[in-house]
Design a protein around this nucleic acid. Structure first.
Lengths: 252, 252
DNA sequence: GACGTGCAGATTGTCGACAATGAGACAGAA
DNA sequence: TTCTGTCTCATTGTCGACAATCTGCACGTC
């Protein structure tokens, strides 16, 4: 699931009430819709319909959409409105290049200053992935996979890297939706995950980064069509009523 | 100077006319204003005045501002509007942590697949920095320094890393404005730059990353108050008329 | 039959106005 | 004096409406 950022960026003196604005809430809803596939990739988003479903005017919706444009999740063509980004071809490599930048740095930080708890959290996320992979729910497998990488980066303790990873996870999901007609995930957990965990436990940054690199290389080649692993697809339901009305007064 | 992103993210089939929307233009103007210090750090931006100066309504201005909020350059407090972000304390470390993630990956990519031209471009940017450092124009020195790092990341050839770096450069500038009352830069070029260039020429990724790490550690300690190097400050003029009216019809 | 042209419909981009919220000034009580 | 409550004003948040633009279809011409 996409992180509802920012969670707590910067710590104020005594206490900070992180009230969410309407734009925040709408942006979160849009991300959820894209992440879940309710807003299919490439689909142009009708401002009138969506704003009506959200129970708000077009103005705050458009403002929130600009957030996603900046994230690279929506694309805006002047006069033609906005649509969910399509990420394919060389852009797939680029997503994983950026992921490597973030995750490799996270791994390096963890191997240097990682506590026992962080390693446990990562191991826990891995166990969740293994459990999910034993079933046939492709959505659950994909979610657990992405969640693992988010937890990995969170363990580095950097606000900006956490935020960047959240965006990259959204883009990774869009890549999955963009390739072929179905969303497919590996059925079995890649052995590189174990290698990565072992390297983290041994505080071997080099080996951990290598594991990541191989893992990403596998993912790219699978996503770019050279697939040769057992995958399971998931059919995305197209709901008519995607968005629930938001209530700016009951913000947390 | 801040890059006017996106330059050409993704390459379409035959030709793509990258017409810029009004929101794009406003966002660029806002970034320029913040980068130049015309919009001082922490200052709340009056929507009425700025939109009037830009010659547009508040709606497109607010939409553009949301882009910068997503970038972490503006902060929006519900009911209190938006203001230029202040980046200080631990957030300074975080900026450089993220910079290390991006630049280290760029360096690794360059040492693996860097062409002669890319290395020349980086060297050229370094020469510019040296030349600027011989003068007393702190602004020019700072610009050349940031430009060097942008060129470095550009050389990696990744759209996302280029964009991320542009944002990080904005944040770095904000850090400079946030600390103390003046904006100061090193008077002499850090020797780590030469080390970095040599390592790149020798395709030694490890040494190059080490040079970056040391360079960033120096910068952080200087910015966080443990300064012990010769610096030159720059006084920021506060202009009354900051923005030039934009003309959506004459877009490039 | 293929291509270019013009019209109609729908959607987006922009604006001005109203409502809601917050900040600061001011007066009164402890 | 200092704190508290209230009032006023400025600014923001939201909305509905208008203008501009694009898409698709129908028509006419070559």
């Amino acid at each position: 699931m996409p992180r509802d950022l920012p969670r707590s960026v910067g710590r104020a003196a005594v206490l900070r009430v992180p009230r969410l604005s309407t734009v925040d809430l709408i942006a979160i809803e849009l991300r959820k819709a894209i992440f879940s596939g309710a807003l299919s990739v490439g689909a142009s988003l009708g401002e009138v319909e969506i704003s009506a479903q959200l129970g708000v005017s077009r103005s705050p919706l458009r403002e929130a959409a600009q957030r996603l444009v900046q994230e690279g999740i929506l694309v805006a063509v002047p006069g033609r409105g906005m649509s969910v980004a399509v990420i394919e071809g060389e852009q797939i490599d680029d997503v994983y290049e950026m992921r490597l930048a973030v995750e490799a740095q996270a791994v390096r930080r963890i191997t240097r200053a990682g506590s026992t708890e962080t390693l446990e959290a990562i191991t826990r996320a891995f166990d969740e992935l293994v459990t999910a992979s034993e079933g046939d729910d492709a959505r659950a497998i994909g979610d657990a996979d992405l969640e693992f990488h988010q937890v990995l980066v969170d363990a580095a303790g950097s606000d900006r890297m956490t935020r960047a990873m959240a965006t990259l996870i959204m883009q990774t999901r869009i890549v999955s939706f963009s390739v072929a007609e179905g969303y497919s995930v590996r059925r079995s957990v890649s052995p590189t995950y174990r290698t990565l965990l072992d390297a983290l436990a041994a505080a071997d940054a080099g080996a951990a980064v290598d594991a990541l690199e191989q893992q990403f290389a596998d993912a790219v080649s699978r996503l770019r069509g050279d697939a040769d692993v057992d995958t399971v697809e998931v059919d995305l339901e197209d709901e008519v009523q995607v968005f629930q009305p938001i209530d700016p007064t009951s913000v947390g």
